[in-house]
Amino acid sequence: MPRRRSASRILLVSSSHRLLLFKIHYKAGALAGRSYWATPGGGLRGDESFEAAAARELYEETGLDVQSVGRCIARKEFLWKMPDEEHVLAVEKYYVVYACAEHCSTARWSAQERDVVCEIRWWSENELMASTEEILPPDLPILFGKALLMSPYQSG
């Protein structure tokens, strides 16, 4: 049975109704050559809660400091191959956070993040739906649609 790897993922939605995604591209190791787009987020540390990990990861990966990430809008379990070739049972919870500005600071990124993230982009719902690139999770356009329906920002 593979090791369980718990992680929090964040749908960061701007007041312009766009979603922040990172393009991950592995240059070496077991995943060399693989590229995909994904939300900010990462693994839990020690006995950290999913919510605390989401807030920490959001701060580390974007510079946005929040007190709370709200409720979980999705939970996923799947087998995943890590860059070091270890196969894990990934358990991910997804949270929505709304940002006033489309800003992303890389100041607190780890060396690994600097190595694998090759692009940062804010996506509209239409751009996400029309993309032919791999985007994870595969149902992210549906989750983004839910996040937009919950948005505190006025439509317009």
Rank of each mutant, 00 (worst) to 15 (best):
E61M: 07
A38L: 06
W109P: 01
E134Y: 06
I73E: 11
V117K: 00
E113I: 04
V116P: 00
S105E: 09
G41W: 09
S49G: 00
R71F: 12
R3E: 15
W80A: 02
H17A: 05
L58G: 09
V13D: 04
T132R: 09
E102M: 10
R56N: 07
A107R: 10
W122E: 08
W37A: 00
D139Q: 05
D65H: 10
L136M: 10
G156A: 10
S35G: 03
R45T: 08
E92R: 02
I24V: 14
R4I: 14
T132I: 12
S68G: 02
A111I: 13
G33D: 13
D47V: 10
I142Q: 11
A54Q: 09
E119Y: 12
S8D: 13
M1S: 15
A52L: 09
V88K: 00
D65R: 15
C72K: 15
D84R: 00
A130G: 10
L58F: 10
A90I: 01
W109K: 02
L140Y: 06
A111H: 10
W123A: 03
L21W: 09
I135C: 06
A107C: 07
S8T: 04
A52G: 06
E51W: 06
I120N: 02
E61K: 11
P141F: 13
D65Q: 14
A30V: 01
L21A: 06
Y59G: 11
E51F: 04
E57K: 08
R45N: 12
S124E: 02
Y94H: 10
K27H: 15
L149D: 09
A111P: 03
K81F: 00
R9V: 07
M82C: 06
L136F: 09
D84I: 01
W123D: 04
S151C: 02
Y98K: 12
A32I: 11
S16L: 12
D115Y: 13
K23A: 05
N126S: 14
R4Q: 14
R121H: 15
L89G: 05
G33H: 12
V66L: 11
V96Y: 06
R75M: 09
W122R: 01
I135K: 00
E57T: 01
L128R: 03
I24F: 11
E125Y: 12
W122P: 03
G29D: 14
Q112W: 15
A53R: 05
G41K: 08
L79P: 04
H87T: 03
E48A: 03
T62R: 04
I135W: 06
A38T: 08
E102T: 12
L64K: 10
A90Y: 05
G63K: 02
R56L: 05
L58A: 10
A32R: 11
L128Q: 06
L136T: 13
I135N: 03
T132H: 13
A7S: 14
L20G: 11
E48V: 03
L44V: 02
G41I: 06
R34Q: 14
K146R: 12
S8C: 08
I142L: 13
W123L: 03
C104N: 14
D139V: 02
D47H: 08
Y98M: 08
V13C: 05
C100I: 07
L140I: 05
G43D: 07
P137F: 01
K81C: 01
D65E: 14
A74T: 07
V91R: 05
A55I: 01
